[in-house]
Each structure stands twice: as C-alpha cells, then as structure tokens.
Design a binder for these strands. Structure first.
Lengths: 150, 150
DNA sequence: CCTGATAGACAGGTAACTTGAGTATAGCGT
DNA sequence: ACGCTATACTCAAGTTACCTGTCTATCAGG
C-alpha cells in the first residue's frame, strides 16, 4: 500500500512540475508547495514552519533561503522577539501560491475524472485522510490533521 | 491528494523501518523492498530491474552494489550474453525478503484494523491501484501495473 | 542576574537519485 | 566478414532534500 501511495504521489508530482513548467515556473518544487500551504497570512517563524512540516529547523532554513532567493518570500524581523524573523509572501509569492492551488486543483479534477468522475476519488481522499489522522493519534493525542486541500 | 499519499507513505515507511530495526536489520530501506519485489526467481538483469522500478541503470547499479555489499544478493555472469550479469538472492536475501513481506503484511493489517477492520482499507487500496493504472495508460498503452502486494 | 530554553546560523555529511561520457559485447544489414 | 548501431554495464560528477553537530544571540523564570 505504502508503495502504491508513493507511486501516486510521484505521478502527481510529475504532472504538477510539467504544468508549472508550462506556466514558466521552473524553480518551484513539491516542497515549496508544502511550505506555501503552511504559511500564515500574518507571518510565521521558521521554527514553527519546521515543526508543521516535520523537518529540522536547519532544513527549513535552507528551504526558506532558497524560496527567498527565488523571490517568493521575505523574512522580516519579529518585533516581539529579536532572535526571530517571520516569513511573509511577496506579491510574486502570492501569485505563485494561487497558481499552485489552481494547478493542483486542475490535476486533482483530472484524476477524479479518470476515476469515474468523482465518487471513487473523493472516497479515496477521505480514506487517506482518515488513515493519517488515525495514525497520528495512535501514540499522541494531538489535533487531527486538517483535511488536505491538495 | 498527492501530499496526503506522500504522508501515508512516509508514515508506513517509518513503521516499517522501526519493525525492521527491532528484528536486527538496520541496512534495509524502502528501496530494497521495492528491489526485492522486482526480482525474478531465476535471475534478473540490472537493466530490466531499472526499467521495472522506473529509475536509471546507474541508480540501479548503485542500489545493487549496496545490496550486494550487504550480502542480500549476488550477481553472476549471464551465460547467454557476456555483457550482462544477473541478480540472484542469497540465502540471507531470501530470509530478508520473507521478513519484509511478513512485516509489511503486519503493518498493512494494523492499518486496516485502524480503518474499521478492512473494508475501507481495501477499497482505498483498490482506488490507488486503479488510479495508478489509469494514469499509466493515459499516454502509452502498456501492460497495467500488477496489483501491489504491499 | 544567572540559568536554561529557544531562534536561528554555520559547517559538514548522507541517501537516493540524476546527467554525461566511456567500454565491451551483440546482432543486424549488406 | 565487416561495419554500424543498439544494448549492458561502469565511472565520475552533480543535485535535491534532507540530516547531525556546534555555535551565538536573545528571552523568560526563579
């Protein structure tokens, strides 16, 4: 099952990159999408983002450096804590986020169409979400993962 | 959806590693499992394996080197073609394959149990398989992916 | 104000790939 | 039988997306 899920992910990833390339974005990867999804409107700290995406602060710092260099985000000093900076989307970043959503929605719709127009697809999605939530609450009883838009 | 699938994969991967570690195998990764699954009983060429797993010959050669160094496979010259070698499982490899199957089956059963004892899980699996097959046959009309045991 | 926690920076390492280029062998058309 | 192209594999180097370990600056509690 896990390998199946991985292959589906890879297939979708490939489609996504292709679509992004067609739109002229060659510097966005899946991880940027995950990052975009984790950002708050009013600025988010690197350490918070790292925790949300389940990676180390260092890996997140690298991802943020990369994303900043590409012009999608800026990091401004946190007025409430001089150690910290908060991540904000630039206009370019905002546009990219919207494009990513649009493309992923399109891909998702295509997949749903391939799978008999919807029903099976949405139950597939529900199943994955439920499985994840259950797995997450196996050990620790944290807040359940919000149903993923993508 | 893709991100969901990826998270499910990662979760399962983590469970699998943990179980393998408990059994004393610290040198097996998910890719070895995929490799094990792709092997024929009577020996398989690297190029064939690379194609089956959708990677380059070079990446497969590296994976095979690694797996051979760990003692799970041997490569013997192909008597029918002096350019080629064929990959065979060692006894240790055979044992590892069987353990992997057993552990993945156990994990799968646990997941199925978490998801209301079966029905939802198997429909999830069917959905993923169907989606993959449909995606694969979008462009080229090749043989459909066999339903994945894991 | 000292102490320990936290935010982040800097350096180096690893896994699992990739592309590019090269060698040995196979097998086909002429 | 000979040359040409395709195939099986190898070697070298680069990339992505992480990791651990160590460091400094800052914050917050007793």
């Amino acid at each position: 099952m896990a390998l199946l899920a991985n292959r589906v992910f890879k297939a979708c990833e490939a489609d996504f990159f292709e679509a992004l390339g067609d739109e002229g974005y060659t510097d966005i990867r899946m991880r940027h999408t995950a990052l975009f999804e984790a950002l708050d409107e009013d600025g988010t700290r690197g350490s918070v983002l790292a925790e949300r995406l389940g990676m180390t602060q260092q890996a997140m710092a690298q991802l943020l450096d990369d994303t900043q260099a590409a012009g999608y985000i800026t990091r401004i000093p946190d007025p409430t804590d001089r150690r910290a900076r908060v991540v904000m989307l630039t206009d370019r970043g905002q546009a990219a986020v919207e494009l990513c959503y649009a493309l992923l929605t399109r891909i998702e719709r295509e997949y749903a169409r391939l799978l008999d127009d919807g029903d099976e697809y949405s139950s597939l999605k529900r199943g994955l979400t439920r499985l994840l939530n259950t797995l997450a609450s196996r050990t620790e009883t944290t807040a359940p993962a919000k149903p993923d838009t993508y």
